[in-house]
Simulated scan of single mutants.
Amino acid sequence: MAKPIAKPIAKPNAKFKLLDAALLLIRERGYTATTVDELCVAAGVTKGAFFHHFKSKDELGIAAAQHWSATTGAFFADAPYHNLNDPVERLIGYIDFRKDIIEGDIAQFTCLVGTMTQEIYGSNPEIRDACAASILSHAATLEPDIEAAMRDRGVDGDFTPASLAAHTQAVLQGAFILAKATGDGAVARSSVEHLKRYLLLLFEE
Protein backbone atom coordinates (compact mmCIF):
# COMPACT_ATOMS: atom_id res chain seq x y z
CA MET A 1 0.00 0.00 0.00
CA ALA A 2 5.91 1.95 -1.03
CA LYS A 3 2.29 0.29 -2.22
CA PRO A 4 -1.14 0.49 -0.56
CA ILE A 5 -0.63 -3.06 0.52
CA ALA A 6 2.03 -4.66 2.62
CA LYS A 7 3.69 -7.89 1.70
CA PRO A 8 0.80 -10.38 1.79
CA ILE A 9 0.45 -12.34 4.98
CA ALA A 10 2.39 -15.53 4.28
CA LYS A 11 0.41 -18.68 4.94
CA PRO A 12 1.32 -21.98 3.29
CA ASN A 13 -2.22 -23.08 2.52
CA ALA A 14 -4.71 -22.75 -0.31
CA LYS A 15 -7.06 -20.41 1.53
CA PHE A 16 -4.48 -17.69 2.04
CA LYS A 17 -3.05 -18.18 -1.43
CA LEU A 18 -6.53 -17.53 -2.81
CA LEU A 19 -6.99 -14.46 -0.64
CA ASP A 20 -3.64 -13.03 -1.68
CA ALA A 21 -4.54 -13.70 -5.32
CA ALA A 22 -7.85 -11.89 -4.79
CA LEU A 23 -6.08 -8.79 -3.49
CA LEU A 24 -4.07 -8.60 -6.69
CA LEU A 25 -6.59 -9.65 -9.34
CA ILE A 26 -9.61 -7.72 -8.11
CA ARG A 27 -7.62 -4.48 -8.04
CA GLU A 28 -6.39 -5.19 -11.57
CA ARG A 29 -9.67 -6.36 -13.15
CA GLY A 30 -12.50 -5.56 -10.78
CA TYR A 31 -14.59 -7.96 -8.73
CA THR A 32 -17.12 -8.90 -11.40
CA ALA A 33 -14.51 -9.55 -14.09
CA THR A 34 -12.37 -11.75 -11.85
CA THR A 35 -13.41 -15.39 -12.17
CA VAL A 36 -12.96 -18.30 -9.81
CA ASP A 37 -10.86 -20.03 -12.45
CA GLU A 38 -8.53 -17.03 -12.68
CA LEU A 39 -8.20 -16.87 -8.91
CA CYS A 40 -7.30 -20.56 -8.79
CA VAL A 41 -4.67 -20.17 -11.51
CA ALA A 42 -3.14 -17.12 -9.83
CA ALA A 43 -3.09 -18.88 -6.46
CA GLY A 44 -1.76 -22.13 -7.91
CA VAL A 45 -4.56 -24.19 -6.40
CA THR A 46 -7.32 -26.41 -7.76
CA LYS A 47 -10.95 -25.41 -8.13
CA GLY A 48 -11.74 -28.11 -5.62
CA ALA A 49 -9.49 -26.35 -3.13
CA PHE A 50 -11.37 -23.12 -3.77
CA PHE A 51 -14.73 -24.66 -2.93
CA HIS A 52 -13.26 -26.44 0.07
CA HIS A 53 -12.53 -23.05 1.63
CA PHE A 54 -15.27 -20.86 0.11
CA LYS A 55 -18.84 -21.78 -0.77
CA SER A 56 -18.94 -19.12 -3.47
CA LYS A 57 -17.04 -16.27 -5.03
CA ASP A 58 -19.10 -13.87 -2.90
CA GLU A 59 -17.95 -15.62 0.26
CA LEU A 60 -14.39 -15.13 -0.93
CA GLY A 61 -15.19 -11.45 -1.60
CA ILE A 62 -16.18 -10.95 2.04
CA ALA A 63 -13.10 -12.80 3.23
CA ALA A 64 -10.91 -10.78 0.85
CA ALA A 65 -12.17 -7.52 2.41
CA GLN A 66 -11.27 -8.86 5.85
CA HIS A 67 -7.90 -10.07 4.60
CA TRP A 68 -7.25 -6.63 3.11
CA SER A 69 -7.95 -5.05 6.50
CA ALA A 70 -5.55 -7.40 8.27
CA THR A 71 -2.82 -6.99 5.68
CA THR A 72 -2.98 -3.23 5.31
CA GLY A 73 -3.60 -2.80 9.04
CA ALA A 74 -0.24 -4.39 9.77
CA PHE A 75 1.38 -2.28 7.05
CA PHE A 76 0.11 1.01 8.45
CA ALA A 77 0.79 0.01 12.06
CA ASP A 78 4.49 -0.21 11.19
CA ALA A 79 4.61 3.10 9.30
CA PRO A 80 7.13 5.71 10.52
CA TYR A 81 4.64 8.52 11.15
CA HIS A 82 3.63 6.83 14.40
CA ASN A 83 7.03 7.79 15.85
CA LEU A 84 6.33 11.54 15.64
CA ASN A 85 5.57 13.17 18.98
CA ASP A 86 3.07 15.83 17.93
CA PRO A 87 -0.45 14.68 16.93
CA VAL A 88 -0.70 17.14 14.05
CA GLU A 89 2.69 16.00 12.78
CA ARG A 90 1.49 12.38 13.00
CA LEU A 91 -1.65 13.22 11.06
CA ILE A 92 0.31 15.07 8.37
CA GLY A 93 2.85 12.26 8.40
CA TYR A 94 0.03 9.84 7.64
CA ILE A 95 -1.05 11.96 4.67
CA ASP A 96 2.54 12.19 3.41
CA PHE A 97 2.85 8.44 3.76
CA ARG A 98 -0.33 7.90 1.75
CA LYS A 99 1.02 10.17 -0.97
CA ASP A 100 4.39 8.40 -1.03
CA ILE A 101 2.82 4.99 -1.64
CA ILE A 102 0.90 6.23 -4.68
CA GLU A 103 3.39 4.92 -7.18
CA GLY A 104 3.73 2.28 -9.86
CA ASP A 105 0.83 0.64 -11.62
CA ILE A 106 -2.60 1.93 -10.62
CA ALA A 107 -3.72 -1.52 -9.52
CA GLN A 108 -0.83 -1.64 -7.07
CA PHE A 109 -1.76 1.48 -5.11
CA THR A 110 -5.54 1.56 -5.30
CA CYS A 111 -7.82 0.07 -2.69
CA LEU A 112 -9.38 -3.39 -2.89
CA VAL A 113 -12.41 -2.53 -0.78
CA GLY A 114 -12.97 0.76 -2.60
CA THR A 115 -12.85 -1.09 -5.91
CA MET A 116 -15.36 -3.70 -4.76
CA THR A 117 -17.67 -1.13 -3.20
CA GLN A 118 -17.97 0.80 -6.45
CA GLU A 119 -19.11 -2.35 -8.22
CA ILE A 120 -21.39 -4.10 -5.76
CA TYR A 121 -22.76 -1.50 -3.32
CA GLY A 122 -26.30 -1.95 -4.62
CA SER A 123 -26.23 -5.62 -5.50
CA ASN A 124 -24.35 -7.37 -2.68
CA PRO A 125 -24.96 -5.90 0.78
CA GLU A 126 -22.80 -8.53 2.49
CA ILE A 127 -19.67 -7.58 0.54
CA ARG A 128 -20.61 -3.90 0.77
CA ASP A 129 -20.81 -4.12 4.56
CA ALA A 130 -17.47 -5.92 4.74
CA CYS A 131 -15.91 -3.18 2.62
CA ALA A 132 -17.47 -0.45 4.76
CA ALA A 133 -16.11 -2.11 7.90
CA SER A 134 -12.65 -2.17 6.34
CA ILE A 135 -12.65 1.48 5.28
CA LEU A 136 -14.16 2.78 8.51
CA SER A 137 -11.94 0.67 10.76
CA HIS A 138 -8.91 2.17 9.03
CA ALA A 139 -10.38 5.65 9.42
CA ALA A 140 -10.86 4.95 13.13
CA THR A 141 -7.10 4.53 13.57
CA LEU A 142 -6.76 8.26 12.81
CA GLU A 143 -9.32 9.41 15.37
CA PRO A 144 -7.04 9.50 18.45
CA ASP A 145 -4.54 11.77 16.68
CA ILE A 146 -7.31 14.00 15.32
CA GLU A 147 -8.85 14.27 18.78
CA ALA A 148 -5.47 15.12 20.32
CA ALA A 149 -4.73 17.64 17.55
CA MET A 150 -8.08 19.37 18.10
CA ARG A 151 -7.42 19.58 21.80
CA ASP A 152 -3.80 20.72 21.51
CA ARG A 153 -4.54 23.37 18.86
CA GLY A 154 -7.79 24.53 20.42
CA VAL A 155 -9.85 23.55 17.39
CA ASP A 156 -13.52 23.41 18.34
CA GLY A 157 -15.32 23.05 15.05
CA ASP A 158 -18.70 21.60 14.17
CA PHE A 159 -17.15 18.26 13.32
CA THR A 160 -15.98 15.19 15.18
CA PRO A 161 -12.73 13.24 14.96
CA ALA A 162 -14.71 10.42 13.35
CA SER A 163 -16.17 12.69 10.65
CA LEU A 164 -12.77 14.18 9.78
CA ALA A 165 -11.17 10.73 9.72
CA ALA A 166 -13.91 9.58 7.34
CA HIS A 167 -13.31 12.65 5.17
CA THR A 168 -9.65 11.69 4.72
CA GLN A 169 -10.79 8.34 3.34
CA ALA A 170 -13.34 9.99 1.07
CA VAL A 171 -10.56 12.10 -0.47
CA LEU A 172 -8.26 9.10 -0.84
CA GLN A 173 -10.93 6.92 -2.45
CA GLY A 174 -11.85 9.77 -4.78
CA ALA A 175 -8.18 10.20 -5.66
CA PHE A 176 -8.00 6.54 -6.63
CA ILE A 177 -11.05 6.92 -8.88
CA LEU A 178 -9.45 9.90 -10.61
CA ALA A 179 -6.25 7.92 -11.13
CA LYS A 180 -8.27 5.12 -12.73
CA ALA A 181 -10.25 7.55 -14.86
CA THR A 182 -7.17 9.32 -16.17
CA GLY A 183 -4.69 6.46 -16.08
CA ASP A 184 -2.35 8.74 -14.14
CA GLY A 185 -1.26 8.44 -10.52
CA ALA A 186 -0.16 12.08 -10.50
CA VAL A 187 -3.76 13.28 -10.23
CA ALA A 188 -4.18 11.14 -7.11
CA ARG A 189 -1.04 12.56 -5.55
CA SER A 190 -2.31 16.07 -6.29
CA SER A 191 -5.59 15.32 -4.50
CA VAL A 192 -3.68 14.08 -1.45
CA GLU A 193 -1.62 17.29 -1.47
CA HIS A 194 -4.86 19.29 -1.35
CA LEU A 195 -5.99 17.20 1.61
CA LYS A 196 -2.71 18.00 3.35
CA ARG A 197 -3.20 21.74 2.73
CA TYR A 198 -6.69 21.55 4.16
CA LEU A 199 -5.50 19.83 7.32
CA LEU A 200 -2.65 22.31 7.79
CA LEU A 201 -5.10 25.18 7.49
CA LEU A 202 -7.53 23.48 9.85
CA PHE A 203 -4.88 23.06 12.51
CA GLU A 204 -3.07 26.30 11.62
CA GLU A 205 0.33 24.77 11.02
Rank of each mutant, 00 (worst) to 15 (best):
M150N: 06
C111N: 14
Q169A: 09
D100P: 05
D96C: 06
P125M: 03
G185L: 05
R98T: 01
H167L: 13
S134F: 12
A186G: 14
R151F: 14
T110W: 06
A148D: 14
A132V: 15
C131Y: 05
S163M: 06
V155E: 04
L142C: 00
S190E: 15
L164M: 03
L164K: 03
A186R: 15
E193K: 07
G114M: 05
A107R: 12
D96P: 04
M116S: 06
S163D: 06
A149S: 01
A133R: 13
R151N: 11
G183D: 05
F109W: 09
V155W: 07
A133Q: 11
A148W: 11
E193Y: 01
E126P: 00
T160N: 01
A162F: 15
P125H: 01
F159T: 03
I127K: 06
E126C: 02
P144A: 09
V187T: 14
T110R: 14
D105V: 08
A165C: 08
G104H: 03
D156V: 11
M116H: 09
A133V: 06
E147D: 13
P144R: 08
L112T: 07
D158H: 14
K99H: 14
M150L: 05
A165D: 13
P125N: 00
A130S: 13
I120L: 09
S134M: 06
C131G: 12
A149L: 01
D152E: 05
G114I: 02
A166M: 12
G154F: 05
A140H: 15
D100I: 10
Y94R: 00
L136C: 11
S134W: 03
G114H: 08
R98V: 01
